[in-house]
Design a protein around this nucleic acid. Structure first.
Length: 417
RNA sequence: GCGUCGAUGGCGGAGUGGUCAAUCGCAACAGACUGUAAAUCUGUCGGACAUCGUCCUACGAAGGUUCGAAUCCUUCUCGGCGCA
């Protein structure tokens, strides 16, 4: 009998919902779920030290990105540096995303005002000028192809957004790189599709992702060293089409993954329904990670529908640009009665009114930063371009969402164990 | 005192007879952000109504030339530099 590097144990199950609390065990420690996964794409949670995470954020797990680390500093460098945990001093469970999201962000989404999360009319696209700083080679490639990567059956050819160099990702290559990086949980290479993609394309992309999933498992199993230290997740796709989502969940359930990512595009309205049909089919004894989604309400929804972990760049991205999560003071209860949680709003500290608002960042939150620094001070830091502003706002937002998710876990355990 | 150069919207700084309410940058004011192409991006930015738009007041001040002036002329005010 083989010993799995990553295992999952359900501790409590909700009634009338798919919600559950559990523990994911990894070589670098346990993750008590539901849990929020902090994103540190380039082996850096922007503006934070790992010590900030343990002392002020309270997250249990951090996620980095295969594509970005492959380009910089190179996975071999990280391997030589002792692997991600040692190299980055991330003394906690870690994950790496496969690069599948970059197939979307540098591909279908490139230069367009679309996100993977459609709100309302999915066909709405606004042209977004290519970001300044794109080097001349990738600029040329973007002009010729309208994007920075090209997909084929075997894999994806990327043009580095950094220096224009060409790189090839396949399922095997992504796994190989993730082995070198050394995160506890790695993810099979997939194709994240655009919300606007039609049924035929979603189906085609999903089936391709399934073939890549199979190859990813093969590849992972061939590396005995990695197998002992790393767990592999497969990624459910299917876009906004429920039958495809179900087909994807069924197909992947039959494969020997240690857990599942749920990826691709959704619409705000039917996120819950999409997750429900998927999680009803995925094996109960394996963890489910909702990829890239994590506004507070989404997390409530996701937990209710059976997701265990969530990652999202929103807390750091909006924090870095001056927006923080704040409790309104209103408590909300889900229709099923499972959860009571604080209503959340986002406020932009750069707004004029906060110049002289000497109240705490979020008086109702228990986070260290929330209860120690005032809006007026942090607003001043942002206005004056002080790097401490983005730092404090990021810590606060991260702590906010991590605590928010932990609170949901506590309620499951309290009511159902 | 003489000579010379200059005075533009909150600031810096373009414009040198019509296409100028005036390029651009900063500041300011808003908005966006969901597996990070992001310490980023977008919009507004003289005033009043306000949907394109219309009407006022504007390029140191006052006059003048001209169909028309931020742009040309005169005087004045203020500032830099040079000579006394």
């Amino acid at each position: 009998m083989s010993t799995k590097a990553v295992t999952f144990k359900v501790e409590a199950r909700g009634k009338g919902t798919l919600a559950r609390a559990g523990v994911i065990s990894t070589p670098h420690g346990d993750i008590q779920t539901p849990a929020f996964v902090v994103v540190g794409t380039k082996a850096s949670v922007k503006s934070l030290m790992p010590e900030d995470m343990t002392q002020y954020v309270g997250n249990q797990v951090t996620l980095a990105n295969t594509y970005h680390l492959f380009l910089q500093p190179g996975h071999e460098v990280i391997k030589a540096g002792g692997g991600l945990h040692t190299f980055a001093n991330w003394q906690m469970p870690t994950m790496t995303d496969s690069g599948g999201f970059q197939v979307f962000s540098l591909g279908a989404a490139f230069g367009k005002g679309v996100t993977k999360f459609a709100k309302g009319d999915v066909d709405t696209e606004t042209s977004v000028p290519a970001k300044a700083g794109l080097n001349v080679y990738s600029q040329k490639f973007a002009e010729d192809h309208g994007k920075l990567c090209i997909i084929d059956e075997e894999g994806v050819t990327f043009t580095s957004h950094i220096d224009g160099s060409m790189h090839r990702f396949t399922a095997e290559r992504s796994i190989e790189i993730q082995h070198a990086i050394g995160a506890d949980i790695i993810i099979a290479f997939d194709e994240c599709t655009a919300p606007a993609a039609d049924y035929d394309y979603q189906k085609e992309a999903m089936e391709r992702t399934h073939r890549w999933a199979k190859r990813s498992i093969m590849s992972h199993k061939q590396n005995y060293e990695a197998l002992k230290k790393q767990g592999l997740y497969g990624v459910v796709q299917g876009g906004r089409f429920l039958d495809l989502r179900q087909e994807s969940a069924r197909t992947l359930s039959d494969m020997d993954f240690d857990g599942f990512g749920i990826g691709g595009s959704f619409s705000k309205e039917d996120l819950g329904e999409s997750l429900k049909v998927v999680n009803e089919l995925l094996p109960e004894d394996k963890p489910r990670h909702l990829l890239g989604i994590g506004e507070p309400e989404d997390i409530v929804n996701g937990v209710l529908m059976g997701c265990d972990t969530f990652d999202c760049v929103a807390p750091t991205r909006i924090g870095r640009t001056g927006t923080i999560y704040v409790q309104t003071g209103v408590m909300k209860t889900t229709p099923c009665g499972t959860f009571t949680y604080p209503e959340t709003k986002k406020i932009n500290l750069l707004n004029e009114k906060y110049k002289t608002d000497h109240t705490l960042l979020d008086p109702l939150s228990e986070g260290y930063v929330a209860g120690k620094y005032t809006k007026a001070y942090v607003a001043h830091l942002f206005r004056s371009g002080e790097i401490l502003g983005p730092h404090l706002a990021s810590i606060h937002n991260l702590n906010f969402i991590v605590s928010f998710t932990k609170n949901l876990r506590a309620q499951i355990l309290l009511k159902y164990s």
